[in-house]
Design a protein around this nucleic acid. Structure first.
Lengths: 147, 147
DNA sequence: CCTAATATAATTGAATACAATTTTATTATA
DNA sequence: TATAATAAAATTGTATTCAATTATATTAGG
């Protein structure tokens, strides 16, 4: 009977690796909320803007590959960002299937108000540079393995 | 002008620690899907059952503390699990504010069909024992820091 | 004892997230 | 060229997720 105690050990929450990933992700995103509220963005809108602050212009497919999100998630996010005036959504002339997302002047300005956010989150997460690097490497290793 | 190249470095997706956490969590949960489909559970229902497989009986507040979820998320999940016959939901006699969730015989049986899942996910995530331990420790360190 | 404060779930509303399907456009092939 | 195959977004439906509010129960303080 005593080996029954171990038979289901792998099903215990404390022995999961995905659960703390899931919990950690949610808890950090929760920490973003007050800062993102100040610039009226959700976390999903924020990471979308990150891509656009860097690339200026991107189609939905490429954006989805960058963010690991599909058009089912991105379409409403992009429509919302468009309604806020931060991006434009225009079909490509070369290939009408492609929707080209371009950052606006307003969207560029928002970057100034967002630039202080990463350090605030960083001090809250509070890892050493070494730990952060180890974590970063492990996470992308997993993403590579899983996909 | 060249220091402008660095001014916004912290806003690049590649310099985030939360984004790979978020992406990694989602991608692993996606990997669970075919296995969870076989036992007709979603990931949220699965981690809820994990707590119940271990504790048999728990109130919503304690469950929420275990899973980092509130009643707004848990109430519909628990109603769904009840409709599937895996749990019962009964108000506590001692304190009518508390809803006591108890696993049923059917819920116990489900454990047998779930016990093979962790190893399948583990081989897909494919970390060494050492890496998994490092990751685990870092994640719970962050959760501790953030909360 | 009575009322204010607190505690616990449930409800509501907005925003994801994703699988599956549909629509439209482009490309490949018979 | 005509049609089949493929590709990109959008749509649909289900299930989270969470902040804020509400409803009900319990506890504490006067």
């Amino acid at each position: 009977m005593e080996n029954n105690e171990e038979k289901y050990a792998a099903l215990k929450l404390e022995n999961q690796i995905c659960f703390p990933l899931y919990a950690c992700s949610k808890e950090i995103i929760r920490k973003y909320k007050p800062y993102l509220d100040e610039i009226d963005l959700t976390y999903t809108q924020y990471i979308t803007m990150m891509v656009l602050w860097e690339k200026k212009c991107v189609n939905v497919k490429t954006l989805g590959e960058s963010l690991y999100l599909d058009s089912g998630t991105l379409t409403p996010v992009l429509k919302k960002l468009e309604s806020k005036g931060y991006i434009s959504r225009v079909r490509s002339n070369e290939d009408e299937r492609n929707l080209v997302v371009t950052i606006t002047e307003e969207g560029e300005k928002l970057k100034e108000h967002a630039v202080c956010i990463p350090s605030k989150i960083g001090s809250c997460v509070n890892l050493t540079a070494k730990d952060a690097e180890v974590l970063y490497t492990l996470l992308y290793k997993i993403i590579g393995n899983v996909r």
